[in-house]
């Protein structure tokens, strides 16, 4: 059955109803009616095209029906649904763009932080320390003694910071790197941020302690947090800790 005009009439008539469940229900009801009219005219001897045209004619002006239906089907949830849909769309677009920006950084992310900082590490020592600090969780991944391009010695600490805050920022984040390290001999050193790479909810950080004298068994890294400091223990020799 050729019902192109009837379908167009139907779409126009229900198009003003903004709440999809309501629109579908009304559309179903009007569809049944206009199809019944099409069948009536076909039975009366009309061609499919004539039946389609006559069915639309007896249904009336779709613009008038649309206006009247839209005025009645104006529920609170219809508008709420529309606003929510717009918000969800905006969040989805933002999420895609955010993830794309993260993936674009992936190449950089895979380059070792020590290489980016111009450091040549000796043997890496695996670590397993974890500390919570504000909205962040810090995991100490590994540590190594290293030399920079001018031959200065450093202790390198590689950390990973994770957070559910997608913006990964704020004043607390920028103030995090004012830290100190105390070794097992009681000597205190200041810690410098050498390099960092951000991915989604996840940042890799390379900290450096300049001119640290070798020989300590372990050290403690202090992380200043908004609710007091957190500590990470660093093993400086394999098999200790």
């Amino acid at each position: 059955m050729n019902t192109n005009r009837s379908m167009a009439w139907l779409r126009e008539a229900v198009g003003g109803i903004k709440y999809p469940p309501d629109r579908r229900r009304v559309e179903k009801e009007l569809y049944a009616h206009v199809m019944q009219r099409n069948r009536d005219f076909l039975k009366a001897g009309c061609t499919e095209r004539e039946a389609d045209e006559k069915a639309c004619a007896v249904m009336g002006d779709p613009v008038e029906v649309r206006r009247d239906l839209a005025a009645i089907h104006r529920p609170f949830w219809g508008y709420t649904f529309l606003i929510l849909r717009l918000l969800l769309f905006a969040v989805a677009v933002w999420g895609v763009l955010f993830h794309m920006s993260g993936f674009l950084k992936l190449g950089q992310y895979l380059v070792p932080l020590s290489a980016q900082a111009g450091m040549t590490p000796e043997q890496w020592i695996s670590q397993n320390g974890k500390a919570h600090c504000g909205d962040y969780t810090f995991r100490l991944c590994r540590a190594a003694y290293a030399a920079d391009e001018s031959g200065q010695s450093w202790l390198l600490l590689e950390l990973r910071a994770t957070t559910l805050d997608p913006l990964l920022g704020g004043p607390f984040y920028s103030a995090l790197w004012d830290q100190e390290l105390q070794d097992s001999r009681g000597r205190v050193y200041s810690v410098k941020l050498l390099s960092q790479k951000e991915l989604v909810f996840n940042t890799r950080i390379l900290l450096g302690v300049k001119d640290m004298e070798p020989g300590a068994d372990w050290a403690v890294l202090t992380l200043p947090g908004p609710e007091g400091p957190a500590w990470l223990t660093v093993r400086l020799k394999e098999g200790i800790g």
Partner: peptide, 25 residues
Amino acid sequence: GYEMVTELAGRSNEVFQLKEGTLYP
């Protein structure tokens, strides 16, 4: 709806032949 339209038209000797889409609002 369709039944109402045909009833109205039939009982009124086709005097009440409303535009059928307007019945639903």
